[in-house]
Design a protein around this nucleic acid. Structure first.
Lengths: 187, 187
DNA sequence: GAGCGGGAGTGATCTACCTCACTTCAAATC
DNA sequence: GATTTGAAGTGAGGTAGATCACTCCCGCTC
């Protein structure tokens, strides 16, 4: 169990050693190789994933088979199909590995159990979720008001490491433009 | 203090009478008239608002003065500039009333106090925030993959009451199209 | 070292949507 | 009851970005 999950949690909500011991028991570590799926459309979604190493993308395919990226997740990020996870229904998105990955898996029942027993964890997830909400609001505003080039520049500014690690066509699929259009923008 | 806030909370996380008594003491009720601002860009954002009656819109203005609507909120919805609220910084958005409103206001310090003291409330806000996150993800997917007409149809289907209550030009500003384009779509 | 596949740039065309200008209509205001 | 105001439809023309087709290039594999 990587200790950095503890650091990640404690950056928001400190834990006692006993609490951490209890919490950490409910995560299971798994390794995936590049191109493997964490979640496939139509399948159940038993876990929320915390990325310990590597990188994944979460995306949908439209009726033309075109990919639209909902989220990238690298070290220290959480990722799953939250809709399917919370409601225990089938996945409507795909999540797969852009690199070899190590992830920590948390089942819904265990997350609820942890939250109930350790209030600091309920607080952690509340605050984490708030921050996620705020980030998505920012992305929506950018989609509504910015032209492609501005969206691209903001992305590079906010996540400079990202552009280094993923092919540009994926950035395009995240921004909502074609790779051709992105290629014509000066960065 | 409208009892329906209690019902709204208990739909997610039940409270004892004592807990509700404690929680409700921290909300203050205020009335606003149509066209009044709850939040103005540049001002501090002391409160999260729960709409008891009426309707508000949260929006940004771009450099051309064009309005982009982040959110509508009617009865039973929460609304504020969450970024400014959480971080106690200045608002980057406007929130104003589309109708006469009654809202319940909750200061950040009080929200944290309530969460700390009453775990059911921490749970309530955690789950509420998760649901909000999921809703924004859906909106982003729609912005990425759907043409204007599809986005419009989905909006009408998901919030049929909305279209009854607000002018179409506001729906356009929410969907990210001009009112002219929206007007040319058959609903 | 020839062949292959994925990432990326680019030209030519096409189109969904924007912009701007004008009109109609109904409700609010005097 | 005349006048203003805001919502909404519509036509003509412009543009950001999509689509499709092609090329180049680099890192693989056999």
């Amino acid at each position: 169990m990587p200790m950095d999950l503890r650091a990640h949690i404690e950056a928001i909500s400190p834990l006692t050693d006993a609490e951490w011991e209890f919490v950490s028991r409910h995560f299971t570590s798994r390794k995936f190789r590049k191109h493997q799926y964490l979640v496939q459309q139509g399948d159940p979604v038993p876990y929320d994933f915390w990325v310990a190493a590597g990188m994944v993308k979460a995306y949908v395919l439209d009726e033309n088979g075109k990919e639209h990226i909902l989220q990238f997740a690298m070290e220290d990020w959480w990722c799953t199909d939250y809709n399917a996870y919370q409601t225990q229904t089938k996945a409507s998105i795909f999540i797969d590995c852009l690199e070899n990955c190590e992830v920590l898996c948390l089942a819904l029942k265990d997350r609820e159990k942890i939250c109930k027993k350790v209030q600091a964890m309920e607080r952690f997830f509340r605050i984490k979720s708030n921050l996620g909400y705020i980030a998505l609001q920012k992305r929506i505003i950018s989609l509504l008001q910015d032209p492609a080039e501005t969206r691209f520049r903001k992305l590079l500014k906010q996540y400079p490491r990202l552009a280094q690690r993923v092919p540009k066509k994926h950035l395009a699929a995240y921004l909502g433009v074609t790779r051709e259009t992105l290629s014509r923008q000066k960065a």
